[in-house]
Every structure is written in structure tokens, then in C-alpha cells.
């Protein structure tokens, strides 16, 4: 495992006096795949949003390679280039083609040349099996295709860490696999990833480490095998049970 990349110390976040994250401490090492699970509303998505500086925080500190990430600070755009984020609802830009979606930030933020950025974009698209969609608009793609484009869009910025916020939650079941395969591929390449997901089997397969969050606190953390087979805490055990129950019903 590599060196410390992302460090979160005592992170507190609240909405209207309601505490969502209550003193989170977390360190992510370079090359690590961290999976965050927990019941809905536990604060796991908020945690990702804080890491990307999309939310003002009310206590604690988040640093990426020693540089502090703070909502509203001047160097945030620079830091965000190092953090790729993929959203549940894809959030492709509907007025731009797939290729323009991917190259917008490389061109405007990193000032790379059009030829070079497009070449890389096409290479990445090919890797996720969407090279032929480069000239199409997002509305012409299926949900799974959109999400793969969104991942490529984030990748093309060469981020040091990638955040995935329930990226398969909005997809039809038959499209989940194609997106998860792309993520497994990224994990194999040794990318640093923080993944929020409800896909437990996938979590077990991809994770180096799993953390379980409930009511704004990290309740348990551990290796995926240990965590999923014999959770140490009552709450995690309960959550995993409920989950199996639900997946049987599906």
C-alpha cells in the first residue's frame, strides 16, 4: 500500500442544526480501494461531497497530500482536478457531445491541446466500449452508457483519487454490471478509489477496506472478508442482515 493521500480528521457537518457527520476520522492511502456502506441518510454521500469541497464543513479538517480542502477556498478548483467524482445521476452536460463532455475540463482547466485531449478521451472511451458514441449526445445513450462516459470524463483529468457516489443506484438492473466492470478494471489498475455503494457483492470483490457508517459515525471498519462474514458490531450485523433479506426479495 502506498503513502497517505487523503486524510480526514474530526470532520463535523450539519444541516440546520441536525448533525450529519459527527467527527469522522479517516485516512486513505494511495492505491487503496475504500468502500463505504451504511443505511440511507447515514451521511456517506455527504462525506463524499465534503471531500470534494461541495459542502461547507463545521469542524475538522480534510487534506489531500497535505493541502487543505475547504469549501469556498481559492485553491479549490486546483485541488478538485486531483479528485474525480462520479454522481448517481451521471450529470453529463446535455448540450455537449460525449467527446466534448470529456474534453471540456482538460481543455478549459488544464489547457491541454485539443488533439491530445481528444486522443486520450477516445482511448478511454474505447476501453469502456463506447468509442463509437463519441459524437453522440447524452440523451441518445442508455443509463449505463451515460455512467461509463461520466467515469471517463472524470478519468481524463488524471485524478489522484476517484469518488463514486452510488453510481449504479439509478440504473436498470441489466446495466449495473457494465458499470461495475469498468470500476473493477480501474481497481485492478491500482487507482485510489472511494466508493459509496449498496452492491454488497461488488463491495466485497473490489474493496481493500470497508467502513460502515451509521448516524454520522464510523461504526466499524475492516477487511471486506471479515466485515461481510463476521461483522464485529451489532449494528453492522443488523444492517447486513436486513440487506440480505432485501436482496432475497428482489
Amino acid at each position: 500500500m502506498g503513502e497517505e493521500l487523503l486524510k480526514i480528521e474530526g470532520l463535523v457537518k450539519s444541516y440546520d442544526g441536525h448533525t450529519v457527520l459527527d467527527g469522522i476520522d479517516l485516512t486513505v492511502h494511495s492505491g487503496e480501494v475504500l468502500v463505504i456502506i451504511g443505511p440511507s441518510g447515514c451521511g456517506k454521500s455527504t462525506l463524499l461531497r465534503c471531500i470534494n469541497g461541495l459542502e461547507p464543513i463545521h469542524g475538522g479538517k480534510i487534506t489531500l497530500s497535505g493541502e487543505e480542502i475547504r469549501n469556498g477556498s481559492k485553491n479549490l478548483p486546483t485541488l478538485r482536478q486531483k479528485i474525480g467524482m462520479v454522481f448517481q445521476s451521471y450529470e453529463l452536460f446535455p448540450h455537449l457531445t460525449v467527446l466534448d463532455n470529456i474534453t471540456l475540463a482538460p481543455l478549459k482547466v488544464q489547457k491541454r491541446t485539443k488533439a491530445e485531449a481528444e486522443e486520450e478521451a477516445l482511448k478511454l472511451l474505447e476501453r469502456v466500449g463506447l468509442k463509437d458514441k463519441a459524437k453522440q449526445y447524452p440523451r441518445q445513450l442508455s443509463g449505463g452508457q451515460k455512467q461509463r462516459v461520466a467515469i471517463v470524463r472524470a478519468l481524463c483529468m488524471h485524478p489522484e483519487v476517484m469518488l463514486f457516489d452510488e453510481v449504479t443506484a439509478a440504473l436498470d438492473p441489466e446495466m449495473v454490471r457494465e458499470v461495475l466492470d469498468v470500476m473493477l478494471d480501474l481497481a485492478k489498475q491500482g487507482r485510489t478509489m472511494i466508493i459509496v455503494t449498496h452492491e454488497m457483492q461488488f463491495a466485497e470483490a473490489v474493496a481493500d477496506r470497508v467502513i460502515f457508517i451509521d448516524k454520522g459515525n464510523i461504526i466499524e471498519e475492516g477487511k471486506p472478508k471479515e466485515f461481510f462474514n463476521s461483522p464485529k458490531t451489532e449494528r453492522a450485523a443488523q444492517f447486513l442482515n436486513i440487506f440480505e433479506f432485501e436482496s432475497v426479495k428482489d
Binding site: N52, L54, P77, T78, R80, Q81, I83, G84, M85, F87, S89, E91, F93, P94, H95, L104, A105, K108, V109, Q110, A150, R153, A154, M157
Partner: peptide, 28 residues
Amino acid sequence: PIQAESALSLGLKPAQVMRYVILPQAVS
């Protein structure tokens, strides 16, 4: 707003988000 956030997360500055992502969509 999440459209703007996704653009911000790519490292675009707020003015660039307005210029390249929000305004073109709003105008149409």
C-alpha cells in the same frame, strides 16, 4: 444545481461553470 456541482468537481472555476455549462443550457 447538481449540474454545476459536477462541473465544479472537474475543477472548473465558477465563472467557467457559468460560461460553459449553465448559460448554454439556460439560453436554449
